[in-house]
Design a protein around this nucleic acid. Structure first.
Lengths: 204, 204, 204, 204
DNA sequence: GATGAATGAGACTTCATTCAT
DNA sequence: CATGAATGAAGTCTCATTCAT
């Protein structure tokens, strides 16, 4: 008689998050207002607060979702590809068609926010830890299989790869006319070099 | 009624910019208010508008200044060092002691803002162009001197280096306990590899 | 579809009133929200409006209940005690252990509200009338029995006693560390004095 | 040249306080909105915050002012009148013509608020302390002059008088048609009794 | 040059209340 | 009977900017 649909509730939440995401992409984390999000969702401001406690709560939820999506992508790729270089190169390929570079901009805002907001710092750092864990795992696996030089410091390598991932996201913002293909090729070569250099050295 | 010292005027401008810079580092581009900047400078809001047309004008001026400082540093380094790898590694060394990573956060905010604000986009892209020009020049010089493999695509290499510079700035934010030394060593090795690989290949 | 037990209905009403009372004591008449009351009662906002037309209706009902409780206490006391002084002193004894003085605060809010809200004014004044009627009755009875000076203006005396009751409620708020015993003793003496002065005067 | 009028500033502050006072009297502490106060003062909402940090700050300032006025009145009266009874009776005379009982209602709201808000509690309790100090001083003086019974507990008597003052303020709210004269006469008699009873007792 | 008074739109959030289910 | 989705006005407060002095 009086059963209330938790599915509906979750659907609405997702609807709001989707609308909020569009607003944040359009205007930035501070630039988008609750009012904007309500208009985009098609609900009243009062109603939004039945689903989220505050604007910060929406941002936190979305941030985790955004970062989690990246993590999942890496997790899936790492399951299929044992080759880390390919993995990173695949990431480069995702840069060009991103339209108005929406996603990247928000990640940078999150990084900036994490320098001041402890809650955001925790979200960002947790994501970074899990991302690096994936990379380290793939690297170690490669070393066990003998396709990656065993002397390579997997932790340091993972760190460098994470830096590259972030840096690559900045490229379309720094030069919108950039051709990612040339960049991708070079990065692949660099990674193959560093990962397999051991073998070559031995031969020398 | 006599027109006052233009030197004084410029001094005051710089004073305001310095105060604004501190405020922005503390609270972010949107988070810092004109009121904050006035308090930090020790002047009144009305007075501030004698020196700058708007908050956006302050941000634009400061953005150029920040990016120009990076450009100058690279320009100086590139005059002394003919070795690009050393140049980038020097940049890595700057990451750790930045305290609360103030500078980096603002650069990321600028990148994010450039995705939405054409004026900021122009500033960011102009800076990127000049930065890459420097890198390309150093790389080409290295190729002429025979210390860098001649077949290397200097444009692509400069692009990758810029990505790395941005990515490295994110590291202290992603993992505050990170030791930059291990990262620096690995990056140096990667760069040396890719720059000088031609020689090795020949020996093979 | 069958009409449900009117007893159940009344029970639920009382449940809501009890919860509302706790909320009002905690946060004040304006400070407590319908939402708070629903949470405390464990029902939904929609449901609450099946039992009360508005927040004001809840307040009105509760106000009458609170005041009526005081009235009943006096009525009972006045049945047992023919001594008005004892009656008032008994009231003083109730002041100390009231914890966070919850009750008193609400009475004062009601008095304040009655200055602006005619509905509340009616409630407060009706209560005052009935309270004073009780006091007058006790006083008159005392005069008939010869224990109270016959010349005393019973109406005026009842008014003064009501003022004292209100004033005593303010004491724990004005000085939380107050010892009510010393106060009680003095008040008793004052009342005995004024009530029985006639006898003394005669004897003089 | 650039001296800025602190007098003007204080005048404006007082203007705002006066307007706020009217609003609070009309609608209560929570009932009056910042918007109301701005309209009554004739300024914009933004501007009000140049003079006060928050609505609570306005309330705190006003509360102290209100209570301080009472304290001053007592201080002045106590300087002229050495007779405490006259002092309290003078207070009773002030009750009737208070129009819409404005002042009293607010004092009751402050008492209620002090049960929940520590800042308000401090204001109320400080006022109470200073008020009682005055009463005690007058009583002690009377005892030294021999017009007040020496055995009387001055502290307890002052407490009772404070309770009476509060209680008398409630009377016009409890019964608007009340004649304060009869009440005043009775109270005077009660006070004279308790204050001078010693003398009579001695004579007995 | 320099002040700070003044604005008004808009920020986030809360709330009493209604309504479809 | 009972739910909680939904509303929209109103709450406090902030902010970039302008203006008279």
């Amino acid at each position: 008689m009086r059963k209330l649909d938790p599915v509906r509730h979750e659907e609405k939440r997702q609807e709001i998050l989707a609308a909020a995401s569009r607003c944040f992409e359009r205007s930035g984390l501070k630039g988008a207002s609750i009012s904007d999000i309500c208009r985009e969702t098609g609900i009243s401001p009062g109603h939004l607060y039945h689903y989220f406690d505050s604007k910060d709560a929406i941002i936190a939820t979305l941030s985790e979702a955004w970062l989690d999506r990246t993590r999942q992508r890496f997790e899936e790729l790492s399951a299929k590809e044992s080759d880390v270089a390919t993995l990173l190169v695949a990431e480069v390929g995702r840069l060009a068609p991103s339209g108005p570079n929406s996603g990247s901009a928000l990640v940078f805002e999150m990084l900036a926010e994490s320098a001041r907001n402890p809650a955001m710092a925790e979200v960002v750092q947790a994501h970074s830890r899990s991302l690096r864990a994936i990379l380290v795992k793939v690297l170690r696996r490669g070393q066990e299989r003998g396709v990656i030089e065993p002397g390579l410091d997997a932790e340091a390598m993972a760190t460098v790869m994470m830096a590259m991932i972030d840096g690559l996201k900045a490229l379309p913002l720094r030069d919108p006319k950039l051709d990612p293909q040339a960049t991708a090729g070079l990065i692949q070569r660099m990674l193959e070099d560093v990962l397999k250099r051991g073998a070559k050295v031995v031969r020398r």
